[in-house]
């Protein structure tokens, strides 16, 4: 028979499993406990700056899904284009970030939200009022904007959590750390 040391392999394997059983859990209790996402996160929405946008429509030309719709009219008073309509259908958007990369006036940002499930399809369409940077409601991501990236909290890395906790003996109570505490810490730093 091909297995000379029968049972040894399984015993060895079980020792690994039992060691893992005694370890501190590495999972987190979503949605109560949230980890910080990447500073360059490409979230499920776009954020648009009214002041910086000139209506050049480079973003709409770059978008290979055709998700961005833009309408402008000439404004003769200050010799600029007035953006009449800026609409993004996030149902078509694949969050590739090419529009943000292409914008020559730094007027377009990726958002940071990732929970964008909606009940109706027409709710997926973002109007320019929803995505205005100047309204200050939405946090722009640091994708292609290093200044914005530096202001965001540091990404939680599993690799850092594990090195600390692999050394620790098993604990019965999981740590309850909320997002608000974490972001407050990051802001202090």
């Amino acid at each position: 028979m091909k297995f000379e040391n029968y049972g040894r392999g399984i015993a060895k394997g079980m020792s690994v499993t039992i060691k893992h059983l005694l370890r501190h859990p590495t999972v987190s209790q979503y949605p109560e406990q949230r980890l910080n996402t990447s500073r360059r996160i490409r979230g499920n929405e776009l954020i648009w700056s009214k002041e910086k946008c000139t209506g050049c429509a480079t973003c709409a030309k770059t978008c290979h899904e055709g998700a961005i719709e833009i309408e402008t009219s000439p404004n003769l008073v200050n010799n600029k284009y007035e953006v009449e309509k800026y609409q993004v259908d996030t149902g078509y958007c694949i969050m590739c970030g090419l529009c943000v990369e292409a914008c020559p006036f730094e007027a377009l940002f990726m958002g940071t939200t990732y929970e964008a499930a909606k009940y109706r399809r027409d709710e997926l369409v973002q109007e320019k009022e929803d995505m205005m940077l100047e309204a200050g409601v939405k946090q722009p991501s640091g994708y292609f904007y290093p200044d914005y990236a530096a202001a965001l909290p540091r990404q939680t890395l599993l690799i850092e959590r594990i090195t600390e906790e692999q050394m620790k003996p098993a604990k019965m109570e999981p740590k309850t750390e909320t997002k608000t505490e974490k972001t407050a810490e990051a802001e202090k730093k």
């Binding site: 360059r40 490409r42 994708y143 990404q155 890395l157 599993l158």
Partner: peptide
């Protein structure tokens, strides 16, 4: 997951990196 974290850090997404 550790590798995906690294990819997320550089590209902003976890599966379709672009």
């Amino acid at each position: 997951e550790k590798i995906i974290d690294l990819f997320e850090m550089v590209s902003g997404q976890r599966l379709t990196y672009n």
